[in-house]
Amino acid sequence: MINLENDYLKVTIALDGAEIRSVFDKSRRIERMWHADAKYWGRTSPVLFPIVGQVKGGSYTFDEKDYNLSQHGFLRDQKFELESSSENQVSFIYESLDKMKDVYPFEHRVTITYTLVEKTVSVTWKVENCDTQEMYYSIGAHPAFNLNGDHYEFEFETRGDVREFSLKQGLVANSEIIAVKPVEVNVENLQNDAIIYDNIDAVSLINRDNGEVTRLACPGFDYVGLWMPVTDGILAPFVCIEPWMGITDSFDEYGDFRNKLSIKKLAPEQQESYEYTVSYL
């Protein structure tokens, strides 16, 4: 485990998946991240790559060859190498090196950098195409934040018209433009899979009992998902705010990876970077 620490927060990150496992809030003396109890959900903050969500039927086609790929891809289960570290910043790197060609036909490198400044953790992904052909991919985050009270609400900062996407069997069925308003964290609002929006620049999870705020800013990201398990009408003690560059397949998707909904592409030897921040207030 690698630690970043200042006067406000102590952040713990694992080499496995380059995943944040803990954010301890020193001023409130509480843990802000979910502790991966498999009773509800056995992860804390996995990185989703090379897909977000599913490919329909668990498989896709590229250059007339079929590939099987599990939900959210494989990067969250890979061991990263430590590239560099300091008191307030750490970078991890993963190189495919021919390891994943049976499920994903592109050589690639992903670097994940975490930077701690006061009460904010910034997360930067750098995706590199190490192949000789154009590379197709999606990338996203799935951080889970503890609920330390009974009355929480989401508030949103938006850009332009916002669409809400409805799912069928975990796949995009349709979407509609909505009037954005705060969403209360309750069974009624979160029992039907993830809530997904586009054109969201930031989401604040606000504890109405004590004013505690977790603000995730992701300007320019394609989508944001809100998710928590609901079992027998009972909410899990955490909620996920998920910024995505990509989305699960359309229910009508026919499997060609080049035509996947919201897929990204990189030319050979090119790279792209994305950044979001989480502030614990």
Rank of each mutant, 00 (worst) to 15 (best):
N199D: 07
N199L: 00
N199I: 00
I200E: 05
I200Q: 04
I200R: 03
D201S: 11
D201L: 12
A202M: 08
A202G: 10
A202Q: 05
A202P: 11
A202K: 03
A202D: 13
V203K: 02
V203C: 13
V203E: 04
S204A: 14
S204Y: 04
S204F: 07
L205E: 11
L205Q: 04
I206Y: 06
I206E: 10
I206L: 12
N207Y: 04
N207V: 10
N207D: 14
D209I: 06
D209R: 06
D209E: 15
N210K: 12
N210H: 11
G211H: 07
G211Y: 05
G211V: 03
E212F: 07
E212I: 05
E212K: 09
E212V: 09
V213D: 09
V213W: 03
V213P: 01
T214I: 15
T214E: 10
T214V: 15
T214Q: 08
R215P: 06
R215N: 15
R215Y: 06
R215A: 14
R215V: 14
R215H: 09
L216F: 06
L216N: 08
L216M: 13
A217N: 09
C218E: 04
C218F: 00
C218K: 03
P219Q: 02
P219V: 08
P219R: 02
P219S: 15
F221E: 09
F221T: 13
D222F: 00
D222Q: 12
D222P: 06
D222V: 01
D222W: 02
D222K: 07
Y223A: 12
Y223H: 14
Y223I: 03
Y223E: 08
V224E: 00
V224W: 01
V224N: 01
V224T: 06
V224H: 01
G225K: 03
G225N: 01
L226Q: 03
L226A: 03
L226F: 07
M228T: 15
M228L: 12
M228V: 09
M228S: 11
